[in-house]
């Protein structure tokens, strides 16, 4: 079943370049003009945000663009479903695959951050499950979009209206408490907020406050999103 694609290395390298440019560029460039943020250098602050945002990006891209290719354009799912495999199996595999790929993408950023000394203790290893949960959450949401999509263009709306605002609202580049109160409240509902709330303290060598809550929100997004995605995809393909 999990003979899924084995061409991961080039895509991990591909999804690594962009966040690294932002992290190092802003981190060193902008960071040198800024005071410490919550007791760490700005670049260390940004590194935690980048780990989460690149996990989000990788999971979203895989579940949407690649998932849509396999479902609709290449009809790979159809071929698989002629074997003794059901749509539910295919969807679970897509979910786990997208989460794994995003785990590798986020993990690569984490590894570099650690090598550059932006992690404080072995507690940073707990970022690994956080990344996987983040990947599951965004893969599920991406699969909903895939189920609804008529073409690749459709995904741009999702990125513009959902993913990009999250980059600004969820504390990737700056602490969310710099935002107006209303936006802060809204940000609490977004999955990336909870991912960052876990990853940043962990990389800083601190156990995150209310970590079961944050983790629970991510898993809730993953489970709820997947349930909706499955229902919509069944309606689309098995009608």
């Amino acid at each position: 079943m999990l003979v899924w694609r084995r061409i991961a290395l080039p895509s991990v390298l591909g999804s690594l370049a962009d966040p690294m440019i932002y992290m190092l560029g802003f981190g060193y460039g902008l960071g040198s003009m800024l005071p410490d943020v919550f007791g760490t250098s700005y670049i260390a602050f940004l590194a935690a945000g980048t780990v989460c945002s690149s996990t989000m990006m990788a999971a979203s891209f895989e579940a949407m663009y690649s998932g849509f290719s396999r479902m609709h354009v290449q009809k790979t799912w159809e071929a698989i479903m002629n074997a003794p495999i059901t749509l539910d199996d295919v969807m679970v595999a897509e979910l786990v695959w997208a989460a794994s790929k995003s785990f590798m993408a986020g993990g690569a950023v984490l590894l570099i951050a650690a090598a550059l000394g932006f992690t404080q203790s072995a507690l940073a290893l707990w970022v690994l499950p956080v990344m996987f949960a983040t990947g599951l959450a965004f893969a599920s949401l991406g699969l909903i979009m895939t189920a609804l999509s008529v073409s690749y263009d459709f995904f741009m709306y999702y990125f513009t209206l959902f993913i990009t605002p999250m980059m600004m609202l969820c504390g990737v580049f700056f602490p969310a408490d710099q935002l107006p109160q209303a936006l802060q409240q809204a940000a609490l509902l977004l999955p990336l907020t909870h991912s960052v709330a876990l990853a940043r303290p962990l990389m800083n060598g601190v156990v995150p406050a209310a970590w079961p809550l944050h983790f629970g929100v991510l898993l809730l997004y993953a489970a709820g999103g997947f349930y909706v995605a499955l229902a919509l995809t069944r309606r689309r393909l098995l009608k």
């Binding site: 290449q74 009809k75 790979t76 159809e78 071929a79 002629n82 003794p84 059901t86």
Partner: peptide, 17 residues
């Protein structure tokens, strides 16, 4: 699912990978 284990399918449109 069990029945399809003994079946081969050639679809109308090729869906090779």
């Amino acid at each position: 699912r069990e029945a399809r284990a003994r079946v081969g399918v050639v679809p109308q449109i090729d869906n090779l990978d």
